Simulated assay, not measured.
Amino acid sequence: MTSLVLLPPDAAFAGYIDTTPFWSHARERKLFVQYCFDTDRFQHPPRPVSQYTGSRNLGWREAIGRGRVHSWIIQNGAATDDRVSHRPTLVDMDDGFRFLSWYVGEDELQHGMAVVVSWALLADGRSWPAFTNADV
């Protein structure tokens, strides 16, 4: 069997958006998300301007790391295919933004199910926020 190799969605756009705060805090297993200071709201994915106001008054803040399953994708693969052990999942975060990642728990996913950030180790040594059942 091959080992599980998880690669994150391409979150770094060289010269476009500096995602250093996301990655540096992820090393500490803290979920930092871009934040609009004009509206006191998170926005994800990161953008060069606020999705709410168009201003550049943006920074990064730590998110709670809890949310509820909005939707997910069912992947079909051979029983020996390690890649089916994670499921792409869209989560409505309690902080008011949506986050696309993976569900890495063993439970059956359900719409509205409470989830919490759990950290997946990527092939290059970085940590990526994935989700598990919050009620377990």
Rank of each mutant, 00 (worst) to 15 (best):
G112Q: 05
V69R: 02
S24T: 12
D18Y: 12
D135R: 15
G54Y: 14
A130E: 04
V84Y: 11
A120T: 10
F99C: 00
G59Q: 02
G77M: 02
S101C: 08
Q51Y: 12
E108K: 07
L6V: 12
V117R: 10
L31Q: 14
F42R: 15
E62T: 07
P9G: 11
L122P: 14
G65Y: 07
A123G: 15
A114S: 12
F13D: 12
A26W: 05
F37D: 15
F37M: 02
L4H: 03
T132I: 14
F131P: 03
R61C: 06
A79R: 08
V117F: 13
R126Q: 15
A123N: 12
Q51C: 11
E106P: 01
P48F: 03
D18F: 13
A134M: 11
Q75K: 05
L90N: 06
S127G: 07
K30D: 05
D107I: 01
M113K: 09
R56F: 12
S3Y: 06
I17E: 13
S118H: 14
D94M: 04
T80Q: 08
S3R: 03
R27Y: 01
S118P: 04
Y35S: 03
Y52W: 13
V116D: 05
G105H: 04
A78V: 02
L7K: 09
K30A: 14
P45A: 08
H111E: 10
G54I: 07
H86D: 06
G54C: 09
P8F: 06
G15Y: 13
C36V: 07
G77Q: 04
S127F: 13
F32D: 10
V117D: 13
V136Y: 06
S24F: 08
D124I: 06
D82R: 15
D107V: 03
A130P: 09
G65F: 05
P9I: 06
H70T: 02
W102A: 04
T39A: 11
T132D: 09
F97D: 01
T19R: 09
Q34D: 01
I73Y: 08
E28H: 09
D135Y: 10
A14K: 09
M113N: 04
K30H: 08
D18N: 15
S55M: 09
P88S: 01
R27H: 09
A63L: 14
A120P: 14
Q75W: 03
H44S: 11
G65P: 08
S55H: 10
A12D: 14
V115T: 07
T53V: 10
D135K: 14
G15N: 06
G65S: 13
R27G: 12
L122Q: 14
T132L: 03
T89Q: 02
T132S: 14
V104P: 07
G15D: 08
R27E: 12
V117A: 02
R68W: 11
E106L: 01
S3M: 03
R98D: 00
D92W: 03
H111N: 00
Q75A: 07
Y52V: 08
E108P: 05
D10C: 06
V33I: 15
V69I: 09
T89A: 01
F42C: 13
D95V: 01
H25P: 02
L90G: 03
N133I: 06
L31V: 15
S55Y: 09
F13C: 04
F32K: 02
P21E: 07
P45S: 02
F32H: 14
F32R: 12
V49W: 08
